[in-house]
Design a binder for these strands. Structure first.
Length: 575
DNA sequence: GCCGTTTTCGGCCCGACTGTTTTCAGTCG
C-alpha cells in the first residue's frame, strides 16, 4: 500500500472524528500523522517492518498500531468504526470551500443532509439559511462553492496521479513479452490536472498484460475488459485505461493517445494533405502500405515535422513552429541552477532548519538557495529585528558552506491590502533577495488587486512577485486581476514573476508563462518548499514552464550564481 | 493521540477574515 493511501485513510479518520465531535487535539494528531506519512521519502511499510514507525514525529504507539493493521490487513478497525456512524456522502461535503466540520455536522444532523445534492437543495430552498449563524451571503457562497467543486471533481491534480502512473507502467513493463510501456494523455503533456490515466503497452500478447493490471495493488475494481483494452478504477478514485498494441504501432498509438485532441486533428489533417493516412496503428500510404509507426519520430517524420515535445502539443501553434524550425529549446530541470523561494523553521509554517534545506539542496545539485521566510503579518512571521538576526545566521552559514550551495538571505514579504510592503524598505534593501506575495484580501475588486500588485512592484526593492495569482488547484480560484498590466510593470521595473512549483499551486500558470515570455518578462521557477523534501518539487514548475514555451534564457534562476548576484544586486544599487 | 518532562499528566499556534451578530463562531492558512 502506497504512503499516499495510508495518509488518505489517516486524514479521513481526522475528518470523521471532527464530524462526530471527537477531541480536537486527537483530530490534529491524525492530521499531523497523515502529513508525515504523505511526505515520507521511503515506503511506510518498510518502517513498519523494522518496527520504527514511532520514530516518525507525530506517530506514537496507537497510530503506529493502526497503520500496521492497515498495512497488514488492508483494514483499519478504528476507521471502520467511525465510518459506520457517518453516511458515505457526508464526508465529501468537507471538500466544499467554506464548509467545515461545524457546518457539515449541523446540516447533517438538523437537516438530514447526507450528500452534495442534498446540500445544494437546502441552499436553494432556504432551509440552510435557517441554521444558527447562517445568512443569505454564506448560503450564496456555499452554493457557488458547490458548483466549483463539481467542476473540478473527477479530475485529479497531476501530483496525485503521477506516482500511480509511474508505478503501473513500471509493473506492466515487467510482464513477459512487453517491449514498452508508457503513460500517455494529459498526464504525459503534464497538464496541471488529469481526468484519467492512459496506459499504453507494446506487446504481441495482450492477455497477460491485462491480467497483471487487474491484480495490481493500486487497482480497486476492473470496470470493463476486452481483447486489447481494459478499464479499471484505482483506489484513489481515478480511472485508468489500458491499451495493448503490437510494437510496430506503439509510436503511433503513443502519439494518438497523448493528444491533445486539437494537436491530433492538426497533425492528421496535415497527413491528409500529404496523401497519407495516420491512425493509432501507424502511418500508411494511399494503398494501405505501412510507412511507419513504431516510434513517435516516425510519425512526425511522415508528416514532415521534427518531434514535438508532449508539453507543447495543445494545438496552439506548435505545428507551425515545428514546420518553420522555430520550436523552442524548452527549459529542462538541469537548467534550473538554484531555488529562490524556500521557507525554514524560522517562520510560521516552515518545518526544516536552514542547514537541512542547504544539505538537501546540495544533494539535488542546486548551486544556490534563497531562504525567504514570511514577514510579520503572517502568523509567527518575522519582524525587522528578527529578520535581520535570521539573515545574519544565514550569511554565517553561507560562509561555512563555501558555495555548496550558496545561501541568499531573503524574505517573502506580504503585499498588504493597500499595496505597501509588510516591512520597511530599509529592512528589505539589506536583504539579498525579496519575494513579494499577496496572502490576504483575495476577493479585492480586480482593479484594486491590480493596483495593489503594481504598487508593490514599483517599490524598487522587490525582485520576484511570488505565486502571482494565488490559486490553489481544486481549492481556491485565482484572484482576479489584470495580468497584462502586471506584466507590463514587471518588465518596466525588472521584476521577475514566479512560477511557483508547489504541485497544488503551479502558479504562474502555463498560459501565464507564455504571455510573460511574449511580454519579455523574466520568470523565476521556485519550489516554495516548506520542508527539505519539498525542494524536489521544482520539476512541477519546470513542467509548467515547458508548457509555457519557456527556454533557459527566460528564467532568472537558470543563471549561474555570479551572474544572478550581479542581476539582483543591480536592483539594490538602483535604490 | 502525541509529546515532554516540570517524568505518567497537562498542554497542544493563533491571527485574519467573513458574516453573522451586537460579541463571536466558523473557516482558513
Amino acid at each position: 500500500m502506497e504512503n499516499a493511501e495510508v495518509a488518505r485513510v489517516l486524514s479521513e479518520v481526522a475528518d470523521l472524528l471532527e464530524l462526530t465531535g471527537g477531541n480536537q487535539f486527537k483530530v490534529r494528531a491524525y492530521r499531523q500523522a497523515a502529513q508525515v506519512v504523505d511526505l515520507l521519502p521511503m515506503p511506510v511499510s518498510e518502517l513498519w517492518r523494522k518496527g520504527e514507525l514511532t520514530s516518525l514525529p507525530g506517530v506514537g504507539q496507537r497510530i503506529a498500531e493502526h497503520v500496521g493493521e492497515l498495512l497488514d490487513t488492508g483494514k483499519f478497525s478504528e476507521h471502520d468504526r467511525l465510518a459506520s456512524q457517518v453516511p458515505p456522502g457526508v464526508l465529501e461535503l468537507l471538500s466544499v470551500e467554506g464548509v467545515g466540520p461545524k457546518t457539515v455536522a449541523a446540516a447533517w444532523k438538523q437537516l438530514q443532509v447526507k450528500d452534495l445534492d442534498a446540500l445544494e437543495q437546502v441552499c436553494r430552498n432556504g432551509k440552510l439559511e435557517k441554521l444558527p449563524r447562517m445568512g443569505a451571503k454564506r448560503v450564496e457562497a456555499i452554493h457557488k462553492a458547490i458548483a466549483r467543486y463539481r467542476a473540478r471533481k473527477g479530475r485529479s491534480p497531476l501530483h496525485r496521479a503521477l506516482p500511480y502512473a509511474q508505478a503501473l507502467t513500471a509493473r506492466l513493463r515487467q510482464v513477459r513479452g512487453v517491449t514498452e510501456a508508457a503513460a500517455a494523455g494529459s498526464l504525459r503533456r503534464r497538464r496541471e490536472t488529469v481526468g484519467d490515466i492512459d496506459l499504453l503497452v507494446a506487446a504481441t500478447d495482450a492477455e497477460p498484460v491485462m491480467r497483471e493490471l487487474a491484480r495490481a495493488p493500486e487497482v480497486a475494481q476492473v470496470l470493463a475488459t476486452g481483447p486489447t483494452k481494459c478499464t479499471v478504477r484505482l483506489r484513489i478514485g481515478l480511472q485508468a485505461d489500458l491499451r495493448v498494441l503490437p510494437p510496430e504501432s506503439f509510436g503511433a498509438a503513443l502519439h494518438y493517445f497523448t493528444g491533445s485532441k486539437a494537436h491530433n486533428i492538426a497533425v492528421r489533417s496535415r497527413a491528409v494533405r500529404l496523401g497519407i493516412k495516420l491512425s493509432e496503428y501507424g502511418v500508411f500510404d494511399r494503398e494501405g502500405h505501412r510507412l511507419g509507426g513504431a516510434s513517435e519520430e516516425e510519425v512526425f517524420r511522415a508528416v514532415g515535422l521534427p518531434w514535438i515535445p508532449p508539453e507543447l502539443r495543445e494545438g496552439t501553434g506548435e505545428i507551425e513552429a515545428a514546420e518553420h524550425g522555430r520550436l523552442p529549446a524548452l527549459i529542462e530541470e538541469k537548467d534550473v541552477l538554484g531555488d529562490l523561494h524556500v521557507h525554514s523553521k524560522a517562520s510560521s509554517d516552515g518545518r526544516s532548519e536552514v542547514a537541512e534545506l542547504a544539505e538537501e539542496a546540495r544533494r539535488l545539485g542546486r548551486r544556490y538557495l534563497a531562504i525567504t521566510d514570511h514577514s510579520r503579518s503572517r502568523p509567527l512571521g518575522l519582524d525587522g529585528a528578527k529578520l535581520s538576526e535570521h539573515a545574519a545566521k544565514i550569511r554565517g552559514m553561507d560562509k561555512r558552506l563555501a558555495g555548496k550551495p550558496h545561501l541568499l538571505a531573503g524574505v517573502e514579504v506580504d503585499i498588504l491590502p493597500d499595496g505597501s510592503l509588510d516591512l520597511p524598505a530599509e529592512v528589505l534593501s539589506r536583504l539579498d533577495l525579496v519575494v513579494a506575495s499577496v496572502h490576504s484580501h483575495f476577493s479585492d475588486a480586480p482593479e484594486r488587486m491590480t493596483e495593489r500588485i503594481v504598487k508593490a512592484l514599483r517599490t524598487k526593492v522587490v525582485h520576484v512577485l511570488g505565486h502571482p495569482s494565488g490559486r490553489q488547484l481544486g481549492v481556491r480560484d485565482p484572484y482576479e486581476f489584470d495580468l497584462d498590466r502586471v506584466l507590463e510593470v514587471a518588465r518596466e521595473e525588472g521584476v521577475a514573476i514566479e512560477v511557483n512549483a508547489m504541485p497544488e499551486r503551479m502558479d504562474l500558470s502555463d498560459k501565464g508563462c507564455r504571455l510573460a515570455k511574449e511580454r519579455d518578462v523574466q520568470l523565476a521557477i521556485s519550489s516554495d518548499a516548506h520542508n527539505a523534501q519539498h525542494l524536489g518539487n521544482l520539476s512541477f514548475g519546470v513542467w509548467v514552464a515547458r508548457r509555457g514555451w519557456l527556454e533557459k534564457e527566460d528564467v532568472l534562476n537558470a543563471l549561474g550564481f555570479t551572474e544572478l548576484r550581479r542581476r539582483i544586486g543591480r536592483r539594490r544599487a538602483a535604490i
